[in-house]
């Protein structure tokens, strides 16, 4: 009995904050989906009105699709580049730490700063990339003002910023692999490509599974770069679900509707992560 008490005393502060600032908001979120108002005036219960609107609002589907589309662009690209960089880092000795440091550096900076920097780099009139484009093709490209280019551009900014994190994660995975297997493979005459595809990749499966789930949870909430670079435009082509939640609260002054959108986001995240966990467990 005393044992239990001590253990719970150690857990009390965490459980307190966890309950008040994570579980309680989760519960009130559900009730808020049936309400309207609350910022200027007291909240009023409106029944299922928010939910009915959610199902007919074309922008909801669009933001969910945009968010998933963004993940499908950003996650594979960042993983492939990070894997290549991790392999490259793994095979060099001289300058290893220096390269690791430089590649990791953008990850340290707020995505906002990355987004601002790329606003200049991509700017139609004086951005460095467009100065180069103009020199080559004669025409500048409006990366962020073009409906089909805006989302890939956002994904690219996020990749630039995130690649250092995944590189170090994959490098750690590679360096923890059992070395004797590689010795055996080399004795069998397996070249670097065969070693990579038949040894490294299969052995890194647990790292990949964890990484994909983690990356999905984080990237489905994409907001900062969109808020800075496009604010959802042009024509809502980069409007993510989190962007719509934020706008419902502050621009449209409709917290109830925003709560319903938040609920949609929670459901999307839970379904996708559950599907992934299920798929990965099956194969292991």
């Amino acid at each position: 009995m005393r044992r239990n008490l001590t253990a719970y005393l150690f857990l009390t502060p965490v459980l307190l904050f966890f309950g008040v600032f994570l579980i309680w908001p989760g519960i009130t979120l559900f009730f808020q989906t049936f309400q309207t108002g609350g910022i200027m005036s007291p909240a009023i219960v409106v029944g299922t009105k928010n939910w009915e609107r959610t199902f007919i609002d074309p922008l909801v589907l669009k933001t969910v699709w945009n968010t998933i589309r963004y993940c499908l662009m950003a996650i594979p690209v960042v993983f492939i580049i990070a894997m290549v960089l991790a392999l490259a880092l793994n095979s060099v000795r001289i300058g290893h730490t220096a390269f690791k440091t430089i590649i990791y550096y953008p990850t340290l900076q707020p995505i906002l700063i990355a987004a601002l920097m790329f606003t200049f780099v991509l700017h139609q009139d004086f951005g460095v990339l467009n100065i180069i484009m103009r020199a080559i093709t004669g025409n500048p490209v409006n990366f962020l003002g073009n409906e089909s280019l805006a989302m890939p551009t956002i994904a690219l900014v996020e990749v630039w910023k995130g690649v250092g994190f995944w590189t170090l994660l994959f490098l750690a995975g590679i360096q923890n692999l059992p070395r004797d297997l590689y010795h055996a493979a080399e004795l069998d005459g397996a070249g670097p490509f065969r070693r990579f595809f038949q040894l490294t990749l299969p052995l890194l499966k647990p790292t990949f599974f964890f990484s994909i789930i983690f990356a999905t949870i984080v990237n489905l909430q994409v907001f900062d770069s969109i808020f800075i670079l496009t604010d959802g435009g042009p024509f809502h082509s980069t409007a993510s679900t989190t962007w719509y939640i934020y706008r419902s609260l502050f621009t449209f002054n409709e917290p109830g509707y925003g709560a319903t959108l938040s609920f949609v986001l929670v459901i999307v995240v839970l379904i996708l992560t559950a599907l992934q966990s299920f798929a990965f467990r099956d194969r292991n």
Partner: peptide
């Protein structure tokens, strides 16, 4: 796995 971005309104 709870997306914290979804909790900003109740929070």
């Amino acid at each position: 796995a709870i997306p914290v971005a979804a909790l900003i309104i109740p929070l």
